[in-house]
Design a protein around this nucleic acid. Structure first.
Lengths: 214, 214
DNA sequence: TTCCGAACAGAACATATGTGCCGTGAGGCC
DNA sequence: GGCCTCACGGCACATATGTTCTGTTCGGAA
């Protein structure tokens, strides 16, 4: 299912587009393509770009410079990563240094590049590095990174980061409401659950995914 | 060490840049930024872009339209994903449909977008979807995706995909050489190791990382 | 107060860049 | 041959877009 419906010139343009974007992070102009592919005229580039657009390999915004977006050949968008702030470390009973608030771009020591596939299109997610083996039963080990979606509510049994007011610390547990109190269940069979008053816990985020370090 | 050295306007511009690029796949023009951030003059945008460039948050090519490249605040480049072919499924005792050979771009049913962080800069990696819980001790569960690096050799104890000539099937195990024979150890304490002749096994790839589905 | 630099306004300017128009040549088809 | 379409060349044109120049405003230092 390769690109058999493309001329060699169109394949060259597609290849050049990929290389150029990989190198510059912005698309080439028509004249960049012209030079890069040894094409004699801008109108030829334009002509072939129109064909490529018809066939679903690229998308163009008219009248806008360098407005070429690479598609996958079926009209779907490509790539796309998000810089997710790595806010700190977390384990059973360890505090998160910075409570997750409104994330400011570029305002963190570290970020993790995630694909939309991994964030499931959610924005505003943040990441925490896991310390210790307290979540081993959830297949999350020391050094792994968990990605959380900010939320103040959750269903029973969800894996959430909660802030304990009295203890002034944050931890990652499964949350179960049991009448007046809340059971915080570690994801490690060798560790006992923690019980506390319902008004002592504040949900900060729900685990969206985990990233193995290995 | 966050971006305390940025003005609110500069932060707004940075944020707008991320959003715009995420939406269009090409950077905004100065006037796009002007409108998007409610800035009164193009020269103000230009002024702040210069500051952002000085501080290592972006890179610009002079004289070129929309030539803004997002950096991470330390002058390093951002993003960049690789489309890794998802070759098939694997489990204890199940075959890989296609033996990993020279990957042809776009010639697969599925691909997984991975960041360079995940592939550790390695190229030619491929991915397999895990079936079953035979690797649960390695924190790899049913439905997860393992990323492998093609190799024909490995050290003892490494997690590798091996092809068993006689049985004509491929499996994912830890490999230990024991004299004339080879011990293939599943990563599940409830499963027994498999012993076979050394010349019956052919290493096909080494596990680089695993991706949790959740 | 005066002076100076950072940040901003506004507009003109230069050029980077997409588009349109006209023409050519090679095939295919009747 | 006559007629069509596809792919291409060349070039002028409109405008999209970065740059620059001249002021203005506002604090803080001297």
């Amino acid at each position: 299912m390769a690109a058999d419906d493309l001329s060699s010139k169109q394949r060259a343009i597609l290849r050049f587009l990929e290389e150029f974007i990989a190198e510059h992070d912005y698309p080439p102009s028509i004249r960049d393509i012209q030079n890069g592919c040894d094409i004699s005229s801008t109108s030829v580039v334009d002509y072939n770009l129109k064909r490529l657009e018809e066939k679903g390999y690229i998308r163009r915004d008219r009248e806008v410079s360098r407005a070429i977006e690479l598609l996958n050949g079926q009209g779907e968008r490509r790539r796309r990563t998000v810089a997710v702030p790595l806010l700190g470390k977390i384990a059973a009973g360890r505090p998160i240094p910075t409570p997750p608030e409104t994330p400011t771009p570029g305002a963190f020591d570290e970020t993790v590049e995630l694909t939309e596939e991994q964030t499931r299109g959610r924005s505003n997610v943040f990441a925490l590095r896991v310390e210790g083996t307290s979540m081993i039963d959830a297949l999350i080990n020391d050094g792994d990174i968990v990605v959380l979606e900010p939320t103040s509510t959750c269903d029973d049994g969800e894996m959430v980061a909660v802030w304990l007011r009295d203890e002034n610390e944050t931890t990652l547990k499964k949350l179960y409401r049991e009448g007046e109190r809340v059971r915080l269940q570690p994801m490690n069979a060798t560790m006992a659950p923690l019980y506390t008053r319902a008004d002592n816990v504040e949900v900060q985020g729900r685990v969206v995914t985990a990233i193995r370090s290995l």
